[in-house]
């Protein structure tokens, strides 16, 4: 059985809960030499220092070794080698392949051409499931549960893959969603249909108001990326609309926590950083524990 980790949609409620509990375990006991003698390849066809360092830290804390590359420009794929050939070659060396690719579906395809488990560290605009698991773990850790929570997502809900994956992952846990986005960046229809089919309650807003914040357990902020726009006038119009400031949190729930996949640009003002409800820096640290859980699961180590 191939234990690749490609998309959060492949995982049941029980499997997600299992991974979340394993992340909790690794937070308590981060140094476990269960990967002693194992080689993990990190193949980053598209550079992402943040994600790569998080995965490599996870492997190192588990006692494994890392080989790989951090930029496709230095590899044979820049000479026209197919993904298949690269994966086949690396499969001869590594026990696990952690890959990030600029093409959508690359990780799924890789998982079909090798017996070595593949962990998807991002495939273009499609999936980034380890980010989703660390988001889920952060929610679980700060709220004590995943069920019956109100999650408010703000910013680029059209192209934001972290938003789509978190929505999918949370769908098992009876959430209420509130979506705050400009017209140009609102949630795609397919996700609305998905929620309708699964009887998930959701509300949509164009105003980022304290009323919405005050009804939330989690505020999930995302950045509006310039490269998503073909029309830069459009970008200039929306980029400063959804900015969270400390003053907006005055009436918020005590248990509210603010998440952000990072890096932020200016959608969270600096004065929020000192508010105990800000959680985005801790959230990034949770990424290592979540990835330890994912790696061990892929290698069938509990």
């Amino acid at each position: 059985m191939n234990r690749s980790f490609v998309s959060i949609a492949d995982y049941s409620k029980e499997e997600i809960l299992h991974l979340v509990r394993r992340a909790e375990y690794f937070e308590q006991y981060p140094n476990q030499k269960v990967l002693e003698g194992k080689v993990c390849a990190t193949l980053f066809f598209e550079p992402s220092t943040r994600t790569r360092l998080s995965f490599e830290t996870a492997v190192n804390r588990l006692g494994g070794r890392v080989i790989g590359f951090s930029d496709a420009a230095t590899t044979s794929s820049s000479k026209g080698e197919t993904l298949k050939d690269t994966i086949k070659m690396v499969s001869n060396y590594a026990d696990l392949i952690i890959m990030r690719h600029y093409l959508e579906g690359a990780a799924r395809y890789a998982s079909e051409i090798t017996d070595v488990p593949i962990i998807n560290a991002g495939d273009g605009a499609n999936q980034h499931p380890s980010q989703t698991l660390l988001d889920l773990y952060s929610i679980y850790k700060t709220q004590g549960r995943l069920t019956d929570l109100t999650i408010t997502m703000v910013g680029d809900l059209k192209y934001g893959r972290t938003v789509h994956s978190l929505l999918t992952g949370m769908s098992h846990f009876n959430p209420i969603f509130r979506f705050v986005a400009p017209e140009e960046l609102h949630l795609p229809d397919i996700y609305r249909q998905f929620m309708d089919i699964n009887n998930i309650r959701y509300y949509e807003y164009t105003d980022f108001s304290p009323e919405v914040i005050n009804q939330s357990d989690i505020l999930y902020m995302t950045r509006v990326q310039r490269e998503r726009f073909t029309d830069l006038v459009e970008y200039e119009k929306v980029k400063n609309i959804y900015v969270l400031t400390n003053a907006m949190l005055k009436g918020s729930r005590d248990n509210l926590r603010i998440l952000h996949p990072l890096p932020r640009v200016n959608e969270i003002a600096q004065d929020v950083d000192d508010n105990p409800k800000s959680y985005y820096f801790e959230q990034a640290r949770n990424g290592v524990y979540a990835r330890q859980a994912i790696i061990c699961n892929a290698l069938n180590l509990k």
Binding site: T82, L83, K84, L103, E104, G105, A106, A125
Partner: peptide
């Protein structure tokens, strides 16, 4: 229909 799909970039 997605030009960034792996199927449009690999012989598969």
């Amino acid at each position: 229909n997605n030009p960034k799909c792996i199927t449009n970039n690999e012989p598969m």
